[in-house]
Simulated assay, not measured.
Amino acid sequence: MRKENIITKEKIEIGILKDLLPHYELEKLEAAYPELRFIQCRKAPETDDIHFFIGPDPSGHDPFGASVDLLKDPIAFWDYKRRVMAYTWLKDLPLTDLTDLYEAWYILKFLCQEIHNTRARKLGRDMAALEVQSPPEVLELFRSEILLILTKPSSSARIRGSLWKNYSNQLKKTKTPLAGIKTPEDPRSEDTLLEELRILEKEALATRLFFGTSPILYKETEEKDAEKSK
């Protein structure tokens, strides 16, 4: 299996409490994150119609329930975005046999190791020990374990470490440094982290070089691309 980012053209719907943000700020957020579609709600959804919700306070029953404070931290929100995309992809992915599980883990393991290294590496070892003819309930158990990891937030330091590890692997193949990518030791790197993440996401879309820090990427349809170019 060639390791490439999974490309989706489906937007992820995020519920957000009505009037939580001024309309112009919500529009700016949607412009910055075209992979997300914000659905304004008068109250927290009580059904599974909306899987992700941002309100005044974190929701106790929703593993991805987040407060408005998330929107004030650009790196935390980017982390939230990539995790809900990975979660949605894996949740909907058919797992018919062990190969399907291995291939899904192949795509998501770097993100999971970044979030919780010890837990993710044990999960990988347990997966490697599975019988080839593992029954569906075993595959689903592993899916659930991966999904649980994806509900947990990362940190700027761990994201920076993952970015640099993935970028270093990329450099070994291309031998071509990318402008704008800072070393972890660069004192400016904390201020430019979000910009660098977006550079590498765009590079992954353009070159199909795997960027494991953000394994599921959104690409707009050709119609949308054409509209923007007008």
Rank of each mutant, 00 (worst) to 15 (best):
T118E: 13
D79E: 09
A31T: 05
G212Y: 14
D73A: 07
K165Q: 12
P74A: 05
T8D: 03
A157Q: 14
A226H: 05
Y218K: 10
I7L: 15
K18W: 03
A66R: 15
F211M: 06
C41T: 11
L200E: 08
S189E: 15
L194T: 06
E201K: 15
E13Y: 03
I181W: 06
T96C: 07
Y167M: 02
L70C: 07
H61Q: 08
L70Y: 08
L209S: 13
R125T: 07
L178Q: 13
S59V: 09
T213R: 07
E27Y: 01
L95A: 09
P177Q: 09
L178N: 01
E223A: 15
L130I: 09
K152N: 10
I149T: 03
P22H: 06
P177I: 10
Y106P: 00
K165D: 10
L150F: 07
L21S: 00
K72L: 09
A226P: 01
E27L: 09
L36F: 01
R198A: 01
G212P: 11
S189P: 04
K173Q: 15
F53R: 08
L123R: 04
D126V: 05
D62R: 11
E131D: 14
I54N: 00
E10R: 13
K152W: 12
E185I: 05
P34R: 00
V138F: 00
F110L: 09
E10I: 10
E203P: 01
T118V: 09
I16S: 00
L95F: 12
I216H: 05
I16D: 00
I159F: 09
Q40N: 09
K43E: 15
D48G: 12
D79P: 07
L93G: 01
T47M: 06
F52Y: 15
N169K: 12
P135K: 04
T192Y: 15
R160I: 08
D57A: 11
S67T: 05
V138T: 14
W164T: 03
L95W: 13
L36I: 07
S154D: 13
K224C: 04
E185Y: 07
K172M: 14
L130S: 00
